[in-house]
Write a protein that binds this DNA or RNA. Sequence first.
DNA 1: AATAAAAAATGACTACGGTCAAGTTTTGCT
DNA 2: AGCAAAACTTGACCGTAGTCATTTTTTATT
Lengths: 204, 204
Amino acid sequence: MAGLREQKKQETKAAIMDAAITLFGERGYENTSIAALARAAGVGKGTIYSYFSSKSDILLAFSEEELACLHLELQQKIPLDALLEEKLLLIFMYEFRYITKNKEFGRTLMREMIFPKALAREKSQEIEEQFIQLFVLIFKEAQEKGQLRQDIELTMTCGHFYALYLMALSAWYSGRLSNEEDVRVALQVMFSQALVGLKPKGRD
Amino acid sequence: MAGLREQKKQETKAAIMDAAITLFGERGYENTSIAALARAAGVGKGTIYSYFSSKSDILLAFSEEELACLHLELQQKIPLDALLEEKLLLIFMYEFRYITKNKEFGRTLMREMIFPKALAREKSQEIEEQFIQLFVLIFKEAQEKGQLRQDIELTMTCGHFYALYLMALSAWYSGRLSNEEDVRVALQVMFSQALVGLKPKGRD
DNA sequence: AATAAAAAATGACTACGGTCAAGTTTTGCT
DNA sequence: AGCAAAACTTGACCGTAGTCATTTTTTATT
């Protein structure tokens, strides 16, 4: 049979992912050693490294799956008639809640997403791409409704809002914002400033 | 004599910092082990941990010094009569060049700055504070000249621009922006968008 | 079925960051 | 000076991420 090898590989990879889901969930990322992961998956330690390039690579793979679910869920929760700002807030707060559900898990994930090492670059970009997809429709619609300038690339707009989200997240990790509500308010303020502009109106 | 102990402590700390400057400079942060640092500083490994809480804490201490110099240098290079956007660009590109001079050094530093672990929080905030000081004068002046809204807290404004800088830096680390010039252009575009706003003009 | 080549799994091993009980030096006090 | 308490130093030790030579399994060929 041709596919035996391929099938086993799939199974092994799935076993490792399953073990990761279980153990990361139970004790968190930092408290789960590769050895424990290997034991739980029923494979040798070395085997893990022929499926994933590093421990954080496993985290990214794990998050990619979880975030896919989250984003699917999210797409149904976005009220079509809401204002752009409300939609953005909904999305980012959803994301925020997921990321910060487990603090050190979220930190490791964000570190790898925003400042990826060469090994993790590919996966971090996939996750990002997934995230961007959420916005495209929303932004297109907002442009049509005249709520958003049309002379700006969507990726730029995306980047702009994402940057502000990052800042809020960072402020939470640094302790400058200490709870979800503060983060929401900060985001709200920053988003409206981004839309209206930081320059005084009616000038130049 | 009262100060013997205190003096020795200063010397020891200085020796560790010197060793860090030398070794980080020679072989980079990741390739310098704590053991090597201890050897170069002429102290035991454990001693290092009574002066610094972690390896990345040493990095932050090291960078705090270097950045203080950089910022001093920078303050003299900012032309007083330049536009706000030009000044911001100058500052952030200066910072960018420093951070990315050594890629993995910069990555570790930024990771610790933006998503600090509890242990490193204090120092990362000091560095940030130092950085913010650079902007205060510039923003105040811009407000007086009517180039910046007055109804926004300066820290917010700061955060807004810093967020965009972060995004550009992240894009560089992810490979979406591949050289200094691309980063400059991206920053320029984003800054002007932030000033003018993402909403169409003359509405609402 | 036998065999050789290719692919995949393995766990002993390495190097590292960080800890801590035991040892050393400094200080304040009599 | 002598002494006890406090502060500081130390390196053996721990747990962990990641590597790699060796072994095991699968495939292709006869």
